[in-house]
């Protein structure tokens, strides 16, 4: 199995504050790698650097052996990294279907003139894109069926908005999917459902890098786990290895009191 993503000594600081310090890890093909760590440990910053929002101060990011460090977010997306957001960032006034279609932006190419003239090639592409979008939405059975697809995204329930974000990220068939706290704010039943769906994504061949606070979910889906604290990787291995690592336990104890990480 080759490495889909490889971080090599990546550092990122904001005005002297090191948010991520010399971070190295790799994500293997078709695995689910989870990053855990207390708030402010640099997890989301790592995601933002990987998706091109910030340029790393030093170090390199390789996607399937090619550097993506310093590319614009849209270029990173085109190379095959797609993501969801901790705080939902759907396009609220657009319909469910349109949100997914936007996710396919880099996979379609109809030009303006061609689109205005409704050339046959454009019509074919549109039909294909729509079919593909519906296929992605169908991964969440019963959630986005029929007329719901033309509802504006803001009218959806919270859990459905989280699901739609995943669907939007999947639309481009990314080589690597970044999930930022996919079950945040969900009730236990909903998280279990999302957990199953994440596992299903792995069985469909997706490679997933995930940030999650819910240890049940981390335990349930992760092939491997990385723990971070103060921008530094403090542990790596199977869930059991990481959860029992004394540095990890300390980091959580120091931050949030006892018991959370066990």
């Amino acid at each position: 199995m080759g490495n889909v993503l490889e971080l090599q000594g990546m550092s990122m600081s904001f005005g002297g504050l090191k948010a991520v310090d010399n971070l190295s890890f790799s994500v293997r093909e078709n695995e689910i790698l989870s990053i855990i760590g207390p708030n402010g440990s640099g997890k989301t910053t790592t995601f933002n650097v990987i998706s091109g929002l910030y340029e790393p101060d030093s170090g390199d990011i390789l996607l399937q052996g090619e550097s993506v460090a310093g590319l614009r977010p849209d270029q990173v997306h085109e190379r095959g990294i797609s993501r969801t957001f901790q705080s939902l960032r759907l396009f609220g006034n657009m319909t469910v279907l349109d949100n997914v279609l936007v996710g396919m932006h880099t996979r379609t190419k109809a030009g303006v003139v061609a689109a205005m003239l409704r050339l046959p090639s454009v019509r074919r592409e549109e039909a294909a894109a729509k079919a593909k979008a519906q296929e992605v939405l169908a991964m969440f059975p019963g959630r986005f069926s029929g007329p719901r697809q033309s509802d504006p995204a803001f009218s959806l329930s919270y859990a459905n908005r989280r699901r739609l974000e995943i669907a939007r990220a999947l639309a481009s068939e990314p080589a690597l999917l970044l999930l930022d706290e996919p079950v945040a704010g969900m009730n236990p039943m909903e998280s279990r459902e999302v957990m199953e769906q994440i596992k299903e994504l792995r069985s469909r061949g997706y490679t997933i890098l995930m940030i999650e606070h819910d240890m049940k979910v981390v335990e349930g889906v992760s092939d491997r786990v990385i723990a971070m604290d103060h921008g530094v990787k403090i542990a790596e291995g199977s869930y059991q290895e990481v959860a029992t690592n004394h540095l990890v336990v300390e980091a959580y104890l120091g931050k949030r009191g006892a018991g959370t990480a066990s």
Binding site: L53, P73, H77, F85, R89, F91, V102, G103, H105, T106
Partner: peptide, 12 residues
Amino acid sequence: QDMEAAEMMGIE
């Protein structure tokens, strides 16, 4: 609606 999110969804 969200320039940053759009960028990360591959829109230039």
